[in-house]
Deep mutational scan, measured.
Amino acid sequence: MDTYKLILNGKTLKGETTTEAVDAATAEKVFKHAANEHGVHGHWTYDPETKTFTVTE
């Protein structure tokens, strides 16, 4: 398992979190669910070198 990071750049919610996942696709599902639960919808990017997802509203 690897550690993946999410950076939230929402209009009303900003922050960072991490998750352990077997691959980037699994981490993305976890992060998108969490972002949706917090009402953050926007443009997603992924940097494979740093294993970091970013969502920007």
Rank of each mutant, 00 (worst) to 15 (best):
M1Q: 09
D2W: 10
D2H: 14
D2A: 12
T3A: 05
T3S: 07
Y4L: 03
K5V: 11
L6P: 03
I7C: 06
I7G: 01
L8T: 05
L8A: 04
N9W: 11
N9H: 09
N9D: 10
G10A: 06
K11T: 13
K11W: 10
T12E: 10
L13W: 15
K14P: 04
K14H: 11
K14Q: 11
G15N: 09
G15R: 11
E16I: 14
E16Q: 10
T17V: 15
T17K: 11
T17I: 15
T18W: 13
T18E: 08
T18N: 05
T19E: 03
T19D: 02
T19P: 01
T19H: 06
E20P: 06
E20R: 12
E20I: 14
E20D: 10
E20W: 11
A21G: 02
V22L: 12
V22A: 13
V22F: 11
A24E: 07
A24K: 11
A24N: 04
A24W: 12
A25D: 09
A25W: 09
A25H: 08
A25M: 10
A25T: 09
T26C: 08
T26F: 07
T26L: 05
A27L: 01
E28M: 12
K29Q: 11
K29Y: 08
K29V: 11
V30M: 10
V30W: 12
V30E: 08
K32H: 08
H33T: 12
A34V: 15
A35G: 03
E37N: 09
E37S: 11
E37Q: 13
E37P: 02
H38I: 15
H38L: 15
G39A: 05
V40L: 10
H41M: 11
H41N: 12
G42A: 03
H43F: 14
H43E: 15
W44Q: 00
W44I: 03
W44C: 01
T45L: 07
T45W: 06
Y46I: 01
D47K: 04
P48E: 11
P48L: 06
E49D: 13
E49N: 11
K51F: 08
T52K: 02
T52R: 02
T52C: 06
F53V: 01
F53R: 00
F53D: 00
V55S: 01
V55Y: 02
T56K: 05
T56Y: 08
E57T: 06
E57Q: 08
